[in-house]
């Protein structure tokens, strides 16, 4: 089921295919929020997320003729924003300075006062790891799909997810005593 249904979607898409700007704006208004959310969860900065969102809707306007109604409209648009976000990560070439990420983390104390919340911990993850966590655990992409989008293997996606969860567990102070 489409989590972001659009009223009169068929008609809006048909008009957008003919270049009707009002229809493209209707698509923008309907999906602006979820598109930005995916972009922001993957990209490092607000500016990147805003830019990726714009590029996503430009691509939607350019490629709407290719959308044949197979699968949900949101699924189609989400694939575009996910791909654009990953491209942005590659373009920016944020260095995966894992040691830095480790070092800037507050150390957990016995009383747990310096534990991070999930939002902050997610933000601290290396870019690729964060993208894999979001695409797999929240958006529901498979490891094979993520690997393909990233130009990597399925195993790469799996190992990134495992390392990310190990970090989250540690940073959130949730390691179970053995």
């Amino acid at each position: 089921m489409d989590p972001f249904p659009l009223a009169d979607a068929e008609q809006v898409v048909s008009r957008a295919r003919r270049g009707d700007q009002a229809a493209i704006e209707a698509l923008y208004r309907a999906f602006e929020g979820p598109v930005y959310n995916v972009a922001r969860r993957i990209c490092r900065s607000v500016e990147d997320a805003e830019d990726v969102s714009q590029e996503t809707f430009l691509e939607v306007a350019r490629s709407i003729r290719k959308y044949r109604g197979e699968g949900s409209l949101w699924g189609w648009i989400r694939a575009i924003v996910a791909s654009k976000s990953l491209m942005r990560l590659r373009r920016n070439r944020y260095r995966e300075t894992e040691e830095l990420h480790e070092n800037v983390m507050p150390r957990r104390r016995e009383d747990g006062l310096l534990r991070m919340d999930l939002e902050a911990a997610l933000e601290r993850l290396p870019d690729v790891s964060r993208a894999v966590v979001w695409l797999h655990d929240v958006e529901g992409y498979t490891h094979a799909e993520i690997g393909e989008m990233m130009g990597k293997t399925t195993s790469f996606s799996k190992s990134q997810l495992a390392r990310a969860h190990e970090r989250l567990r540690r940073w959130l102070g949730e390691e179970v005593a053995v």
């Binding site: 929020g33 930005y36 969860r41 997320a49 969102s53 809707f57």
Partner: peptide
């Protein structure tokens, strides 16, 4: 859900 700070339609 993270929402954009400003309306981006004009730019698009």
């Amino acid at each position: 859900t993270l929402t954009p700070q400003r309306d981006g339609w004009a730019a698009v």
